[in-house]
Amino acid sequence: MSTPVFRFAPSPNGYLHIGHALSALLNARAAVALEGRFLVRVEDIDQARCTPELEAGMFEDLAWLGLPLDEPVLRQSDHFPDYRAALERLQDMGLIYPAYLSRAEIRRFVHGSEEKGQSWPRDPDGAPLYPGDRAVLSEGELGSRMDSDASFTLRLDMQKALTRIGPGLTWQEAGSEGKALFGPAEAVAVDAASWGDVVLARKDTPTSYHLAVVIDDARQGITDVLRGQDLYHATSVHRVLQVLLDLPEPVYRHHRLVLGPDGCKLSKSNDDTSLKSLREGGLGLRQLRRRIGL
């Protein structure tokens, strides 16, 4: 039996908050319980927002939590060529295409359709599915954008991808906390079609979260992905990419979220829940553990 490998993979684009602490501590605890390894990965795709100062602050927070680093720490910015190679492989399969509509154009088109009484499908996160360039742009405008230096995204043709894979795709879900952490995994049916044609890269960004996460998990030999419930449905997209790229399938576990007073998911912009501000305000580690239910 292989050694279990867990990971905590934050983005240094803001200060870690108590929700990150829950995820990091759960992963570290699971690794100890299963006599495995706990890795930290720096997801710094966004080179504009991810800064050395924020990364240093992230490592300070992890040290305060008592989580030692297993060196060397993987940084996504060191592996951009690997993401490009994966995109080229998908392109050779005829599964990705450039899309030229901006977010604002998509919103306007969908809003206009809904004002006319036409419902528009949305993905599990609530974002409208991509309507396709030709639903909004004339052939002349589309051709002009293609011939110019216009911004674009690279999207996965989900229907083609699912046709290539065939029916019956699943992922293995083994719960999250408590006894469920050690329970048997159960097969969950993949519903990737509900995501539509997801973005895999942008003109100025060599990869998206969806593409990078499956490549990095494979690179690091991650056997168990323990992450927040907000990413539960995204697992369908990740399984599709794993199959297309011949990547190994980890076991998934999705833990509860720490919510704010408004019942919403915490944000890095909410400084009152950042580990840095709480630590500087005198909060102890034992108090933090009680606050997040550990």
Rank of each mutant, 00 (worst) to 15 (best):
D78L: 15
Y83M: 08
R84G: 05
A85C: 11
A85F: 07
A86F: 15
E88S: 09
R89V: 03
R89P: 01
L90K: 14
M93I: 10
M93W: 10
G94S: 09
L95K: 02
I96K: 00
I96L: 03
Y97L: 08
Y100F: 07
L101I: 05
S102Y: 04
S102R: 10
E105G: 09
I106L: 12
H111R: 15
H111L: 15
S113W: 13
E114C: 00
E115H: 11
K116R: 14
K116S: 05
G117R: 04
Q118N: 05
W120Q: 01
R122V: 03
D123V: 12
A127M: 06
P128M: 08
Y130N: 10
D133V: 00
R134F: 08
R134Q: 08
R134L: 13
A135L: 03
V136L: 04
L137W: 07
S138M: 00
S138V: 02
L142S: 09
S144G: 15
M146P: 07
D147E: 14
S148I: 00
D149K: 10
D149G: 13
S151Q: 11
S151I: 05
F152W: 12
M158K: 10
Q159R: 15
Q159V: 15
A161Q: 06
R164T: 09
R164S: 01
I165F: 06
I165Q: 01
G166K: 01
P167F: 00
P167G: 07
G168T: 06
G168V: 11
G168A: 05
Q172E: 07
E173R: 03
A174H: 10
A174N: 05
G175D: 06
S176V: 07
E177G: 07
G178Q: 14
L181G: 10
F182L: 14
G183D: 02
G183Q: 10
P184K: 05
A187Y: 10
V188E: 13
D191F: 04
A192L: 04
